[in-house]
Structures are given as structure tokens and as C-alpha cells.
Simulated assay, not measured.
Amino acid sequence: MDKRPIGIMDSGLGGLSVIRIMNQQLPHEKLIFVGDQGHFPYGTRTQQDVCQLALNIGEFFKRQNVKMMIIACNTATAAALSTLQQKMPFPVIGMIAPGAKGALQQEHHDSVGVIGTASTIKNHAYEKALHQLDPDVLVVEKAAQPLVSIVEHGQTGTSLAKQTVDEQLTVFDQRPVETLILGCTHFPFLAAEIQQKLGKKVTLVDPAKEAVNSAEKWLISHDACNDAALLPQSQLYSTGDVKVLESGANQWLSNSNYTCAHLEL
């Protein structure tokens, strides 16, 4: 048993989708979350810039003595995963490889769509990961940066959210897919609007779920789960406006035990 916390980072509030799944699957794990809203958005920054920001958060997690780090950000995974894995003394799990694997495990996956930030799509991170696993899969990519702002501003479930999703996903009208990867941790909060746009026959894949599955397997295989009877209190930090973090946590992490605070890195 290992009672040390797990560190989770994101550029903003999207990483709360990972915490939501962690709380469901691994409720006894203590979590330390950093939403780097002070440098939001990552999706329009250079890879070098994003890598340095992720390294700064990794160093913070090192000081917090975490037992594992999850990069709950597809953009940061593409830019910094290999560097963090080399420099951090704990295992680091990203979103992209688990997400690609999860998509190809679906019953219908001859054509796979990917929506993500401008940076993730520009670098073809998912397309490369998918083709490494299955060279024959058809991949349709679409940058959907405006959807990130919808989530960050608490506008999910609104007519504006539906309108923006419909506008951003029009490419799939002409190039339909069987499975769609939600290639940004903000996007699961818009799953209802996305499913409505694409139809029930399209399977949505949340890489956060696949990443948490990977984390759980590692913890079990290394006898590193926290089996304490009491549910721990997680610590949520924002490098920006903590009130925005509190609002998102109150909306998406109901019945969870957490505190919110500002963090200077």
C-alpha cells in the first residue's frame, strides 16, 4: 500500500474530467490537481513552451512527493510526456496512447475521428498513435479549439454550446466516422452535445477513462494502491482565478471531498 497522492495536471478545468473518473474508480486515492489557468490555453502555445510549463508542474509534484503523475491534457501529453518520463522519479501517464488504444478496441473502428486543440491536431498526435497500432485505420482530424472556451466559461448545456459544437463538427457531415476520440479533456463535458450532433451510432471515446484504467493497472501491479478506509481530501490548485476552479469543481465533482486554492509556480 502507498498512501502518497497522485498528481494530475491540465491547462485549465478539463482535467476535472479525469478527477471525476478517478473518484469513481479509485475513490481512496488522494489527488493533487493543478489547473494551469494562469497560462491557459495551451492549445495555441508552442510545444517548447507547453513542455516547460508541464515540467514546472512536474517539479511541484516532485516536492509534493506524489507516487504518480497523470497529464490530463492532450496538448501537454504530445509536447511533454517523453521529457517528463525521463526527468521525473515517478511514472507519468498521458492521454494519447491510452485514447488511441481505447478507440481501436471499439467494435466499429474502421474510421476514427479525432477532435482536439489546435496544437494536438496540428501535430497529428492521435493520427500517429492510431497508425502505429493499425496502419489501415482511416483517421479524420478536426481542431475544435472554441469548445475549450465553452467549458472554461461554464457554458455547457446551453444553446451556445450546442451551436458551437454543431459548427465545429460539420466536417463529419461529409466525412462520417464510426468512432470519435474526445482528444481534449474539456470535451467530455460536452459529450451530450457532441453525441446529438453525430448521432447515436457514433461511439465516443474518452481518453481520460483509458488513462485512469492504465493508472489503476500500474497501481495494482506495483502494490501501490491506497487502501485506507477513510476517503481522503484532495487538493485542487489553480495558477489563475481560483473562483473559476471552485465553480467548475462544484459543477462537476459533486459528492467529492476537496479543497481549492491558488498556486504560484
Rank of each mutant, 00 (worst) to 15 (best):
V165P: 11
N213P: 02
P135V: 12
T156H: 05
E210M: 10
V212C: 02
D166W: 04
A208E: 01
V114D: 03
K200N: 04
V114A: 04
E167W: 09
E193H: 04
K162P: 09
P207R: 08
F189D: 04
V112E: 08
L198W: 05
V151D: 07
Q168Y: 09
Q163E: 14
A143P: 04
L104M: 06
F187K: 02
Q105I: 04
L204D: 08
E107S: 05
G199K: 13
V202P: 00
T158V: 14
S159Q: 15
S221L: 09
R175W: 03
V205D: 08
V151N: 06
P188C: 05
K209S: 12
E210C: 02
L190G: 01
G154V: 00
S159D: 15
N123A: 10
P146F: 12
Q196S: 09
L198A: 01
Q174V: 13
G183W: 03
K197N: 06
A215Q: 02
N213L: 11
V177T: 09
H131P: 02
Q145G: 10
T156A: 09
A125D: 08
T170D: 07
A100L: 06
Y126C: 13
W218E: 08
I115L: 02
P98G: 11
K201G: 11
H108D: 07
K200P: 01
H124G: 07
E107Y: 03
Q145A: 14
I181N: 05
A144L: 02
N123E: 12
T117W: 00
V137Y: 04
S214K: 03
Q163A: 15
P176M: 11
P176Y: 12
K200G: 00
Q168A: 14
Q145K: 02
V212H: 00
E216K: 11
T120D: 04
A103R: 04
D134Y: 02
L204H: 08
E107H: 06
Q168I: 10
T156N: 12
L130K: 02
R175V: 07
Q163W: 02
V137M: 08
G102R: 15
